[in-house]
Design a protein around this nucleic acid. Structure first.
Lengths: 185, 185
DNA sequence: TGGGCCATGTAACCAGTTACATGATTGC
DNA sequence: GCAATCATGTAACTGGTTACATGGCCCA
């Protein structure tokens, strides 16, 4: 059950559900996805459990905001989660499952097309991540080892995302070579 | 919605729910997890939709088996899934989320411990995958490029798992070095 | 006046987990 | 006689998705 804990991590300063969604879509996108419609009830539940507090504030644009701020108990709960050790989610990788059954195609052409599509897509996400890191490099002279703790750990997750994506790209490329060699026979 | 399609892929020959679960736990474990209690209703649904057929057979050990076999329509549905292009599931990586908040710890010691635990665990899964690949090498002289199509694509998914796990190991190791360097200051 | 962004939410649904229930066969 | 493995399932619940609803503000 990670989402509530992530929200406790993000509400160290007062933040609205809408703002949190933007954070998921930018800074956390390479390791967590959440729907806005999922955040609102989750935040409400944190308040009910005494792990966060709400305050309603007028917004500059649009309707009132509700700013959520974790309580001391909320921070405790977050620390508890961190000290349970590395968490896991059951593996579910749809495109690897598809690769597993690619032999069902009559010809290798379609398998090759599949892998080429996959390669294009992974290269795209890799570039997105790279762009974020590059932006960081420009802003910050001491990048990456002089970063403050906040940014240091954020950069660690970015680095993980980049390395994994690069590994997938190499895998796609050598797989394509192998497939093409088989197709010629 | 991948699980039904995976089951259609696995029921090219008559197979029981119990046997399918074993397949998930051995051959598919590096890219998909499913509970047994999830498989039974899913198989039933495939039959209802005309994508598979059941036949009850006495078992050598224990109670009767129900052998599921995909129909022609079932195979069509599988091919349709494959030709929709690479699928994705929304990203959810609990331990990366935890790394993101590791700055909440007062000292770096706990962060270092977290990464060490993670490294140990990832090394373990990597060894499991390596053992499978090694077993394959022994059995098969022409490994990996002379494999038949079935085994070739299975090996591709294994290769993906190994590469990604190795990327994570390298990430853990360099992250630990960087963390330790910061802790000394 | 119409689209995009700001901002909140609910309800129905689907996928997956956990807990429980049943019972045969095999080997110690 | 008991534990492990073989074999099938159901029910309650949780986590997440999709679709829908509301309405203000800003800019072209």
């Amino acid at each position: 059950m990670s989402l509530p804990h992530i929200l406790l991590g993000l509400t160290a300063t007062p933040t609205s559900g809408y703002e949190l969604k933007q954070k998921f879509d930018t800074t956390l996108r390479h390791f967590w996805f959440a729907e806005l419609s999922q955040l609102y009830p989750a935040l409400k539940k944190l308040v009910k459990e005494g792990l966060a507090e709400v305050e309603t504030m007028p917004s500059e644009k649009g309707p009132d905001k509700k700013l959520y701020l974790r309580t001391a108990a909320g921070r405790e709960e977050l620390l508890k989660w961190l000290s349970t050790g590395p968490g896991t989610a059951p593996l579910r990788h749809p495109y690897l499952a598809q690769v597993f059954f690619l032999n069902e195609h009559q010809s290798h052409e379609q398998a090759i097309k599949f892998m080429e599509d996959l390669l294009t897509r992974i290269k795209g996400t890799c570039q997105t991540l790279q762009a974020i890191e590059d932006g960081w490099k420009d802003e910050d002279g001491g990048y990456p080892n002089q970063l403050n703790d906040d940014d240091f750990f954020t950069q660690l997750t970015l680095d993980a995302g980049l390395r994994v994506n690069k590994a997938y790209i190499e895998w796609c490329e050598t797989s394509l070579e192998r497939l093409k060699a088989r197709a010629e026979k």
